[in-house]
Amino acid sequence: MSDPIDPLTQAKEWQDRGLKVALATVVETWGSSPRPAGSQLVVNEDAGFEGSVSGGCIEGAVVTEALDIMDSGVPKLMEFGVSDAMAWEVGLACGGTVRVFVEKLEA
């Protein structure tokens, strides 16, 4: 069997094919967040993605933001947690807090 795809390898491959790409990285966690700092999700302009920044609960919101950032080129630090009203909508059910840095993969 083959290894799970490395998100950065995937990002490079997408860019090679001429797709716009953004990287999302967990940079800080508190409480019981499911993925440790350094975990990465990569997104292409067709909303295709590889990797993860949570157990699946905030990926949707991160992908949406990533699509904006790959156009604007302006990086953003996103925060998700129980204290955040957004958390109910996107459902970080584990009760932790997580900060995700989203940036464009530039040429």
Partner: peptide
């Protein structure tokens, strides 16, 4: 063997 944020910088290993 741990990535972390220090003073506004993220150190990813």
């Amino acid at each position: 063997d741990k990535s972390r944020t220090v003073d506004g910088y993220f150190l990813q290993i």
